[in-house]
Write a protein that binds this DNA or RNA. Structure first.
Lengths: 232, 232
DNA sequence: CTATTTTTGTGCCAAATAACATAAAATGCT
DNA sequence: AGCATTTTATGTTATTTGGCACAAAAATAG
């Protein structure tokens, strides 16, 4: 993690939040914001640590991982630019229960969480900003629970592929997922063993639902994937 | 669902929220609040409907159910007095994705959600009230996902029993869960079939971890249940 | 109080999935 | 380039869990 020099060039990206502040609040925030660059697979914060920052992903891709029984980790959320993350435990009065790890090289702006918390206490618009995000995330989390617990392997993998498309989009060709995941990551997103992720992805390829080239995955038949996802 | 006459006797219960309002806001709220009594198993709101109320459970017990693949329903949250519920989708700009059903006879105070939303926009303390709850619920939801997906049947059932104790407490004897669930509800809380809930609960009884008398469940060895839950 | 429905309990079998073993391929490192 | 490590691939087996059938018990309705 290296400190990147200047925040002023990143300001436009932070507009969504900055616009909600008064002018003095805004300049205050800029003064204390820090910019960090993370390399691929670098740990942004570990589970168990105390939250000190509100993070804003300016560029790159990040995964939020929770580890369950016997070191088996699960990807519970993925972050794309320009998403804010790492604030939930602070608002709930907890320490981090999940870790944040960069999928790929990423730039993150950090704001001291205590300052954010006091701003929220006096700025209802800012508070609404977080309410809206927490409310959506909670809905997604519940849906994810049902998906992971009730669907069979094929349904879960199809679901993950479509989820990745929604989250990170496709490349210019209109087919290739913009994120290149290891089979292991795909497995922890879909709650299955790596073997089964590999096997099932191969099966999808055989059925011409996807085309696989290393970590590059083309979605050839989204409609059918959606159907598989729906049927479990 | 019948309309109960007066809200004034319930006011002390609503203090947690009312204290955050200014005097005019408070009297305004009281004017538009409505009180409803629900019988056992009565539907409070159905999935798919549009949220119109912030609900506050004053007495009784409520389950929030989401139905997944093939009508299989899952209990995603349980509500105890004095909890607020039913507001998440309104803040996320969605319709209800889950239903609320009374476990047992319950009294609920309803506030028009649009009024709550506009209050939240101008009252940062009230906003923080919801932020705090959403943040905790989101943490619980993530933990639940890991529990349900990574633990084996025994672990999940043990988990549910301890969760029910945390949520609704024990009776005066210090052992009996204060909530009497059908085996089917126990199953949808633990994400397993009813047969397996019955089987596994019997196994726990044989092992003297619990004592079962109809729907009455005594927790005889919480430490061991916690261990089973941890190990998966 | 009896008939009907729902809930609970148990056994057996089949399906889904994890675990393990091993090899090939790809990647990173010096 | 060559070696070590990680990732991907595939087959085999064992475990876990769901599905189904049916009986007993309990709750509910008439």
């Amino acid at each position: 993690m290296k400190r990147s020099p200047n925040i002023t060039d990143l300001l436009p990206k932070l507009d969504g939040l900055m616009q909600l502040l008064t002018e003095p609040q805004r300049s205050n925030m800029c003064g204390v914001a820090s910019v960090h660059a993370f390399r691929k697979n670098e740990l942004i914060y570990p589970a168990g640590s105390h939250p000190t920052m509100l993070h804003c992903l300016v560029s790159g891709k990040v995964k939020i991982c929770r580890e369950g029984v016997g070191l088996r980790t699960q990807i519970v959320r993925v972050i794309r630019p320009v998403d804010y993350f790492g604030y939930r435990p602070a608002f709930a009065g907890e320490d981090y229960v999940s870790s944040a790890i960069a999928f790929e090289a990423s730039v993150i702006v950090g704001f001291p969480i205590d300052m954010i918390k006091s701003l929220v206490r006096e700025n209802a618009s800012l508070a609404c900003f977080f309410i809206q995000r927490l409310a959506s995330d909670l809905g997604q989390a519940d849906e994810r629970t049902v998906n992971l617990t009730q669907k069979h392997i094929r349904g879960r993998l199809a679901d993950s592929l479509l989820f990745l498309k929604d989250s990170y989009g496709l490349e210019e060709d209109g087919y290739t997922l913009s994120i290149y995941l290891s089979r292991e990551d795909l497995a922890s997103l879909s709650n299955m063993t790596t073997s089964n992720a590999i096997r099932t992805l191969s099966a999808f390829a055989t059925e011409k639902l996807v085309a696989v080239d290393g970590r590059k995955i083309k979605l050839l038949d989204e409609a059918k994937l959606a159907k598989i996802s729906r049927m479990g």
